[in-house]
C-alpha cells in the first residue's frame, strides 16, 4: 500500500469516525492537531485507527503535533513502521 492510498483511507476513516462528517474531504496537508480539528479526546482514536487499519502502533507520547500534524505526516510514519 503506498502513501497516497494510506492518506486516502485514513482521511475517510477520520472523517467518518472522529469528525462524524462523511461529506468532508481532508487535504493531505490539512492541519489536524494544532488547529484543534481533532480534539484531545480523539487523539487516542487516531492511534487506534492506525493500529486497526495498518497494524502500526502510535505510542501515546507521540500523540502530539510535534510528531505529526496532518495526514501526510501520519502516513509517512505508518509507511516507515510497516517497513
Amino acid at each position: 500500500m503506498d502513501k497516497n492510498e494510506i492518506i486516502e483511507k485514513l482521511g475517510k476513516k477520520i472523517c467518518e469516525d472522529i469528525l462524524k462528517d462523511t461529506g468532508r474531504i481532508l487535504a493531505p496537508d490539512e492541519v489536524l492537531i494544532s488547529s484543534g480539528l481533532i480534539d484531545s479526546f480523539s487523539l487516542v482514536d487516531l492511534a487506534l485507527i492506525a493500529e486497526q487499519m495498518f497494524g502500526v502502533r502510535i505510542e501515546d507520547y507521540e500523540l502530539n503535533a510535534d510528531t505529526f500534524d496532518n495526514l501526510e505526516q501520519l502516513a509517512e510514519i505508518i509507511v516507515e513502521r510497516k517497513g
Partner: peptide
C-alpha cells in the same frame, strides 16, 4: 468557526 472556537476555548464543536 470550528478553528476559532477550539483555539479560543479549547472546546471542539460537534
Amino acid at each position: 468557526i470550528r478553528k476559532m472556537v477550539t483555539q479560543s476555548t479549547a472546546v471542539a464543536l460537534r
